[in-house]
Design a protein around this nucleic acid. Sequence first.
DNA 1: TAGTGGTCTAGACCACCCT
DNA 2: GGGTGGTCTAGACCACTAC
Lengths: 233, 233
Amino acid sequence: MTQPRTKSWRGIHAELLRRINEREWLPGSIVPNEVDLAEEFGCARTTVNRAMRELASAGLLDRRRKAGTRVALHPISRVILDIPIIRLEVEQRNASWRQSLLEQSTCIPPTRITSKLGLAQNTRMLHVRSLHFADSHPFLYEDRWINIDALPDALKADFSTTSSNEWLIENAAYTNGDIAFSATNAHGEIAELLDTQEGAALFVVDRITWNKQAPITSVRLSYAPGHRMNTKI
Amino acid sequence: MTQPRTKSWRGIHAELLRRINEREWLPGSIVPNEVDLAEEFGCARTTVNRAMRELASAGLLDRRRKAGTRVALHPISRVILDIPIIRLEVEQRNASWRQSLLEQSTCIPPTRITSKLGLAQNTRMLHVRSLHFADSHPFLYEDRWINIDALPDALKADFSTTSSNEWLIENAAYTNGDIAFSATNAHGEIAELLDTQEGAALFVVDRITWNKQAPITSVRLSYAPGHRMNTKI
DNA sequence: TAGTGGTCTAGACCACCCT
DNA sequence: GGGTGGTCTAGACCACTAC
C-alpha cells in the first residue's frame, strides 16, 4: 500500500476523500475552510487548495466564495471516456485493423445533416463511408460528412489508405463538439455490411465537431453487435 | 467575446491552445519549457505550469520530466459524462419521475454476477428490480444486485419509496467501479415492461462498484428505445 | 549528470457573494 | 461588510529520466 505523505497534496486529497467516503463529513455539510485545514495539516494554503480543487472538479465538493465548501449532496459519477482513433481501438484489442472504403464522393447531404451543422440545405459536402475490420470481422461502419468549405484539402485526400477518421484528427483542428451514444436496430445495407441479421442491436456513436463556429464533420459510427465501451469510475 | 488577460493562467491556457489548434506548434514537436514560457508571458512559472497541466490532463500535451513537453500526436478526445441519479435524469427532461418496484428479495444470483463481483457462487444477495417512468412512459428498467455483507442496512430499506439507485448513492460509499455501455435487443419481460416490441434496440449501461476491495452492487440499466446519452467535447 | 516538470511555501491581492 | 475561495508571485527543493 503506497501511502502518500500527509503533507503532499495527494496525501491531503486522499485524507479528505476518506472523510467524505466514510461519512465523517456528511453530504451537504460545510467543511473547514482552506486556512484551517492548512493549519491542521501543517502545510501552505495553496496545497490544501490543490487537493480541494481536484475534489471539486471530480464533483465531490461544492465550492463557492464566501459560502465555503460543502460535501456534494449528489456526488455525480463523472465518467471519463477516452475515445481513440478507430485503428488504435482495434489494435488495443490485439486485432489487426483494416478498412474498406465504400464511398468517397461530393454530394448534397440529407437535411438532417445540414440542419444539425447549421449549413444551407444545398451545401455540397464530402461523403465518406467505410467499413472497419478487426482481423477479418467487421468492426464498425462509419458514415461521415465533411464540410468542404472548412476543409478543402479533404478533397485531395485518399481515404482508402488513411482512414478519414485518422486523416481528420491529423489535419483538422476542432474546438468543440457534441457526442451522443445510443442504440439502433441494424437494417438493410448496414446489417449486411456488419455481417449480422436484420434487427440486431447496434451501439451507435454520433459525433459532430466544430472549429469555433465553422462545422467540420458529422459522423455516425455503428458498431458490430456485442460491442461494449468500457471505462473505470 | 470575453478575452482572458494574457497573464492569467486561463489566458495562457487559451493562447497555448490556439498555438496547438492553429498548428503553430505541430503535433509531436517539442514546445518551450516552463521557464521560457514564463519569461515570454511575463509571469511566474507556477502560472504557466497551471495552464500546461490543464492541457496535459485534457490529452493535448505530453509532458515528461527532462524530456520536456510535446504536442500530443493523437489528441484523444476525452469525453466527460456526468451520470446523475435516475430521478434527476428524468427531471432534467422536464418530465415527472415515478418508479414501480417489481422485486425486492434475497436470493442467489446467476454466476455471471457473482463471478464479476468476485464473490462465492452461493452468496445470497439482495435482488432489486424496478421500472422507472418519465411522466407516464417507461424510461428504463433497472436490474440490480446488492452485496448484503457490505450493506446489511439495505435489507431494512424500502425501495418502493426511495429508489435503490438513490438509496445507494446516499448510503453507500464507493471507491471505484467499472462502467460499460452497449446495445441489446429487447426480449420477453423487458420488452413488455418498456412497452416496446420484441427485438427493439435498447441502450444499456452496466455498472459495478466497489468500496476498496468489497463489492457493493452490480446493476444493469436498460433504457427505453430511442434513448440518447449526450455530452459535449 | 544535468535539464525538465512536479510540488511546496509564505505571502499577497482580488472577485465573488452570503449575510 | 467581510469571509471565502481563486489566483499570482518569487523562490526553493525534489523526482524523474533522457542523454
